[in-house]
Design a protein around this nucleic acid. Structure first.
Lengths: 210, 210
DNA sequence: GCACTAATGCGACTCGAGTTGCAATACCGG
DNA sequence: CCGGTATTGCAACTCGAGTCGCATTAGTGC
């Protein structure tokens, strides 16, 4: 979706790559300084030293900018810390994830993609893929805990991760209640308690998706 | 925020009320048919048989339209069903809430306010107030359960409600995973299990909000 | 009813997002 | 180094969101 060059030859050469980097960096800065509501193609183009037509042609508009900037900025080789108890590792993960959204540089971009998902199909896919990726990696916290006997076997590891993260994002972006560190601790304790009670044990998942 | 008439006299007379109703209905229909991304003041104004200047003056723009339309459309005397067990009542509540967001008529408006909250302070306050109100009412499910001995005393009733709803909204609007009825059941079971484990028992809530 | 004024209608205007056709530039393979 | 083509720059254009001043209409209090 970033660029749709179906013509015979693609040209990922120096200038193209330089422009992408310049535009993505400009988008990140614009988002950090002015926010998603004020993000405009022209400002980004000018800041990146690129003509706005180029941005429209390669990214299609603000949605594409936001999506590509996220993929440009995220840390691809992140792994959760597995050195403590389940509770400690989950709390650590929750804090890191929350910080990523509150961070002055990259936070606005994360938020912007979530916001863009309300208006753009590409953004929906990007957000979905982002969470699938992060949840998949964080799942090792749970599988390790299962191996250590901290949680019952057959526990759906991704379900536990989601149970930890859902209240945090809900407070942040839906109910707009704000998130304290105590909320993180409560989310972790609730998820672990539910897992120990067998709620997340893999059972036949009936009921079709809507 | 709907109208800012600080001049000496307000005039909530017949025409004003009629126009508000027409505009709000038009907004609901536009949202249902075209969605939030395509919502425009001009379309709403034309549909309502009102000049666009009037809409801009009284509502300020699309954000105001969305916010006021929600307040126009929500059912003010809703009360949760308390006839079953905690699990049954919570599951019933979760289904009703989910239906409200998936409903063809009012659902798009709920979604639109959540989306608008990413761009407008008024929308943030509206969403915040909406959830505070709904959570407050649904809390009677928990207080009743405490009286019946189904849950430990000292349980923070709103925390339980939020624990039920958070995963649902998270899947709907953040991770974009879709929601099945099995997910609702799991959310209810997790919240109840956590409450029974004492996770939501009112304790000194340290950690400041961010 | 009648005066007074809030609320609305109306048209013209500004301004910025997004598009298009064409010229200039820079990468790529030889 | 050189020709071919993808990519970009450029300028002019369209189109719709939002604003402003003024005329008109319709509540409100008497």
């Amino acid at each position: 979706m970033c660029a749709e060059q179906q013509p015979g030859q693609v040209r990922p050469g120096g200038r193209t790559a330089r422009n992408r980097e310049a535009v993505c960096r400009a988008t990140l800065l614009e988002l950090a300084e002015r926010g998603y509501a004020a993000l405009t193609v022209e400002n980004v183009a000018e800041r990146a030293g690129v003509h706005k037509t180029t941005v429209y042609r390669r990214w299609g508009g603000v949605h594409g900018l936001v999506v590509d900037s996220l993929q440009f900025a995220i840390d691809d080789d992140w792994q959760p810390d597995l050195s403590g108890t389940v509770e400690e590792n989950l709390l650590d993960h929750a804090r890191v994830a929350l910080d990523a959204f509150l961070d002055a540089e990259i936070g606005p971009t994360h938020t912007a993609v979530v916001a863009a998902a309300f208006q753009s199909t590409e953004a929906i896919e990007a957000v979905h893929a982002f969470f699938a990726d992060r949840f998949g990696r964080a799942a090792s916290i749970i599988t390790t805990a299962i191996e250590n006997g901290e949680l019952p076997p057959e526990t759906d590891s991704i379900a536990v991760i989601r149970a930890v993260m859902a209240p945090i994002y809900f407070r942040l972006f839906i109910s707009r209640e704000g998130v304290s560190d105590g909320d993180l601790q409560q989310a972790v304790q609730a998820a672990v308690a539910s897992a120990r009670a067998g709620v997340f044990s893999s059972f036949d998942q009936d009921g079709e998706r809507s």
